[in-house]
Design a protein around this nucleic acid. Structure first.
Lengths: 215, 215
DNA sequence: GCCATATCTTGACACTGTCAAGTTTAACGT
DNA sequence: ACGTTAAACTTGACAGTGTCAAGATATGGC
């Protein structure tokens, strides 16, 4: 399928690009948005720079002026992915009762919701090749996601073994569960809905409210 | 870098291919082996059919006669990956004391060892695009891996919540922890060595040895 | 109004997976 | 022993990929 021959068929009318072959308007953001769309429809394997450029309506080499390479665009997409990831976790937590167990369960619900509804994006942000420490924006957004989890874990007494044991355990648990559910590997494919945290959560003892913990 | 021009530079002497441009001998196995080597050196992104073929010393289209496509070769490589994965888990378990907690900890040690020492292979076997239920060999090998975990979890009393809760919890925990460690995302990059199962394991109660459980 | 510069296009390159057609080798029935 | 058939491999082609170089055009500062 020749993609470059249908160059000027964009999905949105060229509001930003005023009848001129150059200066799209906000090409950088448009590329990220189009990349996410293609990612959600064609998966991570079907994502190519040329396809993104064609969808936005620019030439195949246009993205090079906004991103250092394909990987840089993927990093920007991943950063956006982390933002909606954090938003879903926060929403899940806010829709729960103030009880610490419910708070944590709500956070995990948001986690799983992201993994389910944005499968390709979920795979992207946790894939090799996307080094979180390489890019400033990606480091920022991923840190915020971890921060939210850390805050929620702070509602409980820390483990006597290690101060970060709670975070690591919860994060591993929910991430592993999400991964195995999404990829449907090694688990019964009949769509189990049992959550492992319902088994693990009672073992966590809520912290004494020695201060005004209303975050 | 022109790869096709150095076609006959294979890494092993052509013992199986007796001075003839055809009939390699056991090309299928050689392609899988070469694929794993390239995978471990160049990562999952640097793996191409042509590179594999060049390394074995055959033309770029030779693999097509043994694998339906690139994905089929990846599936075969993944199957082999599952085999060493299971072997490492089994070895970790066999090197532990008969105590159920030690048995499970040994298994998890093997799990993490595989994820660490065979990073790209670990990413491959748990990636989308490799559907475990599509290929017979892959389904077989992945089932064996899960079976070993299930057997080890059977050393403990099942959770009152759900009969498979132990398996799901342990698998999620170790898989999530391995993933986060390998990709080094969202966790302190100072190489923590705290294992979350050391916190989780004491909550599991060993099963009563009502039968001769010496597996 | 002019010019530097950012923005985008066109064209080329090497590399990729996959297909079609040809060539050599091995296997097998007679 | 020999000729036919099928398998194994090669060569060549094609569209698609990321990336670079060079050219065209519009924007914004002077």
């Amino acid at each position: 399928m020749k993609l470059d021959t249908v160059k000027f068929k964009r999905d949105t009318p060229p509001m930003t690009r005023q009848n001129s072959p150059h200066h799209h308007g906000d090409l950088r953001a448009a590329l990220i948005a189009a990349g996410i769309k293609i990612l959600e429809s064609d998966g991570i394997a079907g994502l190519s720079l040329r396809k993104i450029a064609a969808r936005v309506g620019v030439s195949h080499a246009a993205p090079a002026h906004h991103f250092k390479g394909k990987n840089a665009l993927l990093v920007a997409i991943a950063a956006q992915g982390f933002r909606t990831f954090t938003a879903l976790m926060r929403a899940g937590r806010e829709n729960a009762s103030p009880d610490p167990h419910d708070q944590l369960a709500g956070l995990c619900r948001g986690y799983l919701e992201f993994a389910e509804k944005h499968e390709a994006l979920f795979e992207l942000i946790f894939s090799t090749g996307i080094k979180a420490h390489a890019d400033d924006e990606l480091r920022e957004t991923s840190t915020q996601a971890y921060q939210l989890l850390e805050d929620t874990c702070a509602l409980f007494e820390p483990s006597p073994h290690h101060e970060k044991s709670n975070e690591i355990m919860i994060w591993s648990l929910v991430h592993g569960y999400a991964t195995l559910r999404v990829y449907n590997k090694l688990m019964s494919p009949d769509g189990e809905t049992v959550l492992p945290f319902e088994f693990i959560l009672p073992h966590l003892t809520p912290r004494e409210p020695h201060a005004a913990d209303k975050n």
